[in-house]
């Protein structure tokens, strides 16, 4: 449908709906449920240079209107993703996919991105700079403008595809991080990653999550995410992908009104595996109700 199309960094999306990394695996589970080619694209599971087993269990906890997770970037490593997941994906998904990358040093980010940049299926690199790291003195890459810029520059130096820096909301001034990434050459930004949270089990008097803290997502974070997308979209001149608690076509429109070019949907996929399909189907009706002719020319 022509009116749903948007352009994300030179690649046309049939609609702005993108399942977020970590909630869609490498696509296989959802492809058994519906034709995932109806999606604009999707961002695959956060991939690192080396395989990662992730954190101890429990990794998941309930929260009011949302959930906490501390999966810990469990993934098979970039080489197996390229050798096994991408060929499997090619059989079920015929559009450019967004490659989500994480790392524990600047060099690791760059090397993982360099390897994925060589894959024809990859349309964009989404660089997650909001995982706790061991390189920068225990500080997240995404919470320090200089480190965020350093990762951006290192990735841009070894890649040709559009680089989208995925920002952490656990900062005082997200616009400053956004500007640092943009100034360092980022092609786009995506936000927000999860908000750090915690739960304690009253019976055991211990944290519910083995990692003690986890990332909060789901509708609970939507207003925070929207505010940050709004702030960042005004602080930079590069495209912004909005995400955080999006669960409906109305939420997608609201994110786009705040300045997002496209919208990622995360936790909603876990509680309703058909969430993105429903959102895409609902979009035209919601656009009609609010007098929106097309999603690419309305701001």
């Amino acid at each position: 449908m022509e009116r749903l199309k948007v352009n994300l960094l030179g690649i046309e999306l049939s609609n702005p709906v993108i399942p977020a990394s970590g909630t869609f695996g490498y696509g296989r589970e959802f492809a058994e449920l519906y034709d995932i080619n109806i999606l604009g694209t999707f961002s695959f599971k956060g991939t690192t240079l080396h395989p990662r087993l992730g954190n101890p269990l429990p990794r998941i906890a309930e929260a009011p209107a949302g959930m906490l997770n501390a999966v810990g970037l469990q993934n098979p490593g970039v080489d197996r993703v390229i050798a096994e997941e991408l060929p499997a994906l090619a059989r079920i998904f015929h559009k450019p996919v967004m490659a989500n990358v994480s790392g524990f040093s600047v060099d690791e980010y760059a090397e993982t991105c360099r390897r994925l940049d060589a894959c024809v299926q990859v349309g964009w690199l989404e660089v997650n700079i909001s995982c706790p790291n061991v390189h920068g003195g225990g500080m997240s890459f995404g919470t320090d403008p200089a480190m965020a810029a350093a990762v951006t520059r290192a990735v841009k130096a070894v890649t040709t595809k559009p680089v989208i820096m995925k920002l952490s909301p656990n900062v005082t001034d997200i616009a400053a991080i956004a500007r640092a990434c943009a100034d360092a050459g980022a092609d786009g930004l995506s936000l927000i990653n999860t908000l750090m949270g915690m739960r304690i089990d009253l019976r055991t008097r211990r944290p519910v999550i083995a990692n003690v803290t986890g990332g909060l997502s789901g509708p609970a974070v939507f207003p925070v995410a929207l505010r940050m997308v709004y702030q960042v979209a005004r602080a930079v001149d590069i495209p912004v992908i909005g995400m955080g608690g999006v669960a409906s076509a109305e939420d997608v429109i609201e994110m786009m009104l705040a300045g997002a070019t496209a919208v990622e949907v995360g936790a909603a996929n876990l509680v309703d595996p058909f969430a993105c399909k429903k959102i895409i189907e609902d979009l035209p009706g919601v656009m009609d109700r609010y007098g929106i002719e097309r999603l690419d020319k309305w701001r």
Partner: peptide, 21 residues
């Protein structure tokens, strides 16, 4: 296990086996 999705998408529940997690 405490599960996120229950259908294999989120990696919320894993178990170590001889064939990996």
């Amino acid at each position: 296990a405490r599960m996120g999705c229950g259908f294999g998408a989120c990696m919320g529940c894993t178990c170590e086996t001889i064939a990996g997690y």
